[in-house]
Nucleic acid binder design. Structure first.
Lengths: 119, 119
DNA sequence: CCATAACTTAGCCATATGGCTAAGCATGAT
DNA sequence: ATCATGCTTAGCCATATGGCTAAGTTATGG
């Protein structure tokens, strides 16, 4: 990914990895420290931390270091931009179907007009 | 991405690129051929085709070749697995908040019991 | 039938991703 | 004061990604 990815880019690519989705699912239950989270994943800590950093960059999680422990939590409304985008897509799609329906209705009416001319 | 990515992996990573999201937005308006779609993107055709292939692998679009023209269309319910996953996450999150509320309520009741013993 | 249009294949390149190890650096426990 | 814990940094490696050009292939239009 380039330097200036949009938040949507960051969000979707962050979610495109099973390790990262698992972290989010775990965090939905409540906060956890880095090592607590890492315990579930057979992976060296530095590798794991990279995933956490991506989640943080995508603003899906927030982290906070107290002493030597970094605590991670799910961001509130983490998925909002995604839902907004999905809603917009759905809106376009249904608009188009509506317009197609109109087209078919008009076509039908025109055919009827031809069959029974209105004079 | 490895050879055996889950559909969710394919879906999310397919959506993690602005070119590909733009293609989907365009296709929400209706079918289009490869060159029609490519016209909007300053990119060589083979590069563009790679994006289409990823969208197809993620089952976000379907394509169909008639003569020398390949027509592309949005898949129906393309986003369903994503919505399902998001719903599940939301469910976990709200469950957890509910349980937290209960905990606070119980805590409060216990404190009141201590303040006003029930004999 | 021949040229052009619309892909398609092959292969190259730079950068990004996702993993690792080894070593460093605070902080908390003893 | 010292040692273990909990990250953190640095750097290496293999593969994946996203772009390109050049050279096919397969219809169609004239």
């Amino acid at each position: 990914m380039a330097k200036h990815d949009s938040l949507l880019d960051l969000l979707f690519t962050a979610l495109g990895d099973p390790t990262r989705r698992a972290i989010l699912t775990r965090l939905a239950q409540g906060e956890a420290s880095v090592t607590e989270l890492a315990a579930a994943h057979d992976m060296a800590l530095p590798s794991f931390m990279k995933h956490l950093r991506k989640l943080e960059q995508a603003r899906l999680i927030t982290t906070n270091k107290a002493g030597r422990i970094r605590s991670c939590a799910l961001s509130a409304n983490a998925f909002a931009p995604i839902e907004t985008w999905l809603d917009a897509q759905r809106a376009l799609w249904t608009d188009r179907l509506d317009r197609h329906d109109d087209y078919l209705r008009n076509l039908h009416r025109r055919r009827q007009d031809e069959a029974e001319p209105e004079n």
